[in-house]
């Protein structure tokens, strides 16, 4: 899980954002438009070789780094 967190934070870095490793931070403060949001999802998918289903995006399940890590871990197990 720690490795996943580190890689998710690096996904932000590679898009030009520096996010604190803190689950109280709302990642939508960084990904504040649809292009950056989708870019982030693509970066995560490519980093972990997974495909994040649309419903996860629509349901707003990923609001902080912890949420993103949970989704990644779950999809990796499938």
């Amino acid at each position: 899980m720690e490795d996943t967190r580190k890689k998710v934070i690096e996904c932000f870095n590679s898009l030009g954002f520096v996010v604190d490793d803190d689950d109280t931070v709302d990642i939508l403060d960084y990904l504040d438009n649809s292009i950056t949001y989708i870019s982030f999802i693509v970066e995560v998918e490519s980093t972990f070789d997974i495909e994040i289903p649309d419903e996860y995006l629509l349901q707003g399940r990923m609001r902080n780094i912890g949420n993103v890590c949970d989704v990644v871990e779950m999809l990796k197990k499938e």
Binding site: L15, G16, F17, V18, V19, D29, Y30, T36
Partner: peptide, 8 residues
């Protein structure tokens, strides 16, 4: 500001 915008 720098954290959120340096990518630009």
């Amino acid at each position: 500001y720098a954290k959120r915008n340096i990518g630009q």
